[in-house]
């Protein structure tokens, strides 16, 4: 269980985290989403007691990080920036951490095995690929068998196999009753991994709800229509109160009418339909809807056109995503 109460953190003039409050519960994967520079990494560093908040507090299992009797047994973290000396071997990196808690050598071998680094345990970490470095970071996080785990963009730089591996690991850990808090700026990634999301923008809380609700709550629903007679159908549906936008592939995107209503109207006017697909805003769009107002670098125009373009997914894909 992680709790943040009114967390505030400034770096000089930058307000990185702004009175942020949320809870991360056990037995589920909680995604931590926000655009670049929205304060995700900062929040995680504050939770880990590495950066000191200017206001508010963060607790793990009810205690501030500094008061944890056995930090590695309670929390494990893979943070954004590397925390490994390139000249030290993977084994020795874990071993020096293990010694602080009297963790036995066999546990070090165990986590190395778990992340698939047993064969390179004696190699210096500086020679590791990005993915291997990431795995070593995950091994360090798991070393003390903690009940709370934080991962800051764990799939960064991983190949598809690695991404799948991390995803499976996170789900597995949550299944064991652990508290999993994982940041990303990819909503689609979170859709596959998280049960719950905490969304922030400019350091402020934007949303804190189950993923399913976030998708369902997205206001934008539309219907993709393909017809050889668009010049006939368009005035008919517009007359019924819908808006029509031509798609790039010759299809029409109709907003404001259900697929049934469009089909009925087409039948009444003898318009032939080749496709009629109800669509929902994708998670990525739901995310951008949420964070649009808080985009750090004023890229609204770009964000909108991307959202209107390829970022729509079919209900079937959404189903698979969950």
């Amino acid at each position: 269980m992680i709790e943040a109460h009114g967390l505030t953190k400034r770096y000089g003039k930058t307000l990185a985290v702004d009175s942020l409050s949320f809870e991360v519960r056990p037995s589920q994967v909680t995604g931590f989403l926000g655009p670049n520079g929205s304060g995700k990494s900062t929040t995680m560093r504050v939770i880990m007691g590495l950066d000191l908040p200017d206001g508010g507090s963060a607790t793990i299992n009810g205690r501030p990080y500094r008061d944890l009797p056995w930090p590695l047994h309670e929390v494990g973290a893979l943070l954004e920036a590397k925390a490994i000396h390139p000249g030290r071997t993977a084994f020795n990196h874990l071993w020096m951490l293990a010694q602080t808690h009297g963790i036995r050598r066999s546990r070090v071998d165990e986590v190395l095995d778990l992340v698939g680094l047993s064969e390179v345990a004696g190699r210096r970490a500086g020679k590791f690929s990005l993915g291997m470095g990431q795995r070593l970071g995950i091994a360090a996080a798991l070393l003390g068998d903690p009940s709370v785990l934080l991962f800051d963009e764990p799939v960064n730089g991983l190949d598809p196999e690695g991404i799948l591996w991390v995803r499976t690991l996170l789900r597995h850990l949550a299944g064991e009753g652990r508290t999993i808090f994982v940041s990303s700026h990819l909503m689609s990634e979170m859709a596959l991994t998280a049960d719950h999301v905490v969304v922030i923008g400019r350091g402020r809380l934007i949303a804190d709800r189950p993923v399913a609700e976030l998708v369902a709550g997205s206001s934008r629903r539309f219907v993709k229509v393909r017809t050889p007679q668009p010049e006939v159908l368009t005035p008919v549906v517009v007359g019924a109160g819908a808006t029509v936008a031509p798609g790039t592939d010759g299809s029409l995107t109709v907003t404001g009418l259900s697929a049934e209503a469009i089909g009925d109207l087409a039948g009444e006017h003898g318009v032939r339909l080749h496709e009629l697909t109800p669509l929902q805003a994708s998670l990525e769009e739901a995310f951008m809807d949420l964070t649009r107002d808080s985009l750090e670098f004023g890229g609204q125009g770009v964000a909108r056109s991307e959202a209107g373009g390829g970022a729509v997914a079919s209900p079937a894909q959404e189903g698979a995503a969950r």
Binding site: M48, G49, P71, K82, A83, R88, T100
Partner: peptide
Amino acid sequence: GTGTIRATLSAVPN
């Protein structure tokens, strides 16, 4: 320089 301090202080925050 290497960031090891973050691993160190995560294990021993004192």
